[in-house]
């Protein structure tokens, strides 16, 4: 994948060679992003802490299978976090409540303490704020809350087709807005 940061390369090298230093680097650089995904998906601090630890262990255990030619390290880790959260939701047969996107804006400031991160934080917030709230809501419910298209339609009182249209619109806007951040 293109546009790898030096830290991603260092982590990948250590991860593939089984050096635990990889995990310290992951923690110091990506824990906020990964924990943020858990919080967003599970909401409760207790569940999020538990799942976040599980995610870190999974990253470590599966580390040797990571192929930097097939995926970007950060995306690979976020996918592990998402899948682990979805597993817990299934296990508990529950899902988090709908959360208004604006209520999460305050946490954005917290991530800036990270030493290195694969995206441009300052621009990110402004760019994402350009998305329409209705479109963003659909995207969040699908991506973070694991709701099906039908469930989102019911919750937001939208026709089924509108849900898909809004999600696609939001993704396309994100693609345009974030393209420069991921070098594509």
């Amino acid at each position: 994948m293109s546009n790898k940061t030096p830290i991603e390369e260092e982590i990948t090298r250590n991860l593939l060679s089984g050096n635990e230093k990889a995990m310290a680097l992951i923690y110091d650089n990506y824990s906020a992003a990964l924990y943020g995904v858990c919080r967003k998906m599970l909401l409760s601090t207790e569940d999020s802490e538990e799942v976040f630890q599980e995610v870190m262990v999974k990253i470590w255990k599966a580390g040797k299978s990571f192929d930097p030619n097939k995926a970007r390290l950060y995306t690979w880790m976020v996918n592990i976090a998402r899948n682990t959260c979805i597993d817990l939701m299934r296990k508990n047969n529950r899902r988090p409540q709908i959360q208004d996107t604006d209520s999460n804006v305050h946490v954005i400031e917290q991530k800036n303490h990270n030493t290195e991160f694969p995206v441009d934080h300052i621009g990110l917030k402004e760019e994402i704020a350009k998305l329409r709230k209705e479109d963003r809501n659909v995207l969040e419910l699908a991506y973070f809350s694991g709701y099906s298209q039908g469930e989102i339609a019911k919750k937001l009182n939208h026709p089924l087709g509108t849900v898909k249209t809004r999600a696609r619109k939001a993704i396309n806007e994100l693609k345009t807005l974030l393209a420069r951040d991921i070098g594509r």
């Binding site: 946490v107 991530k111 994402i128 994100l174 991921i182």
Partner: peptide, 10 residues
């Protein structure tokens, strides 16, 4: 990348 918008320190 979008998910990073919700980052929160553990």
């Amino acid at each position: 990348t979008w998910a990073a918008d919700f980052a929160e320190a553990p």
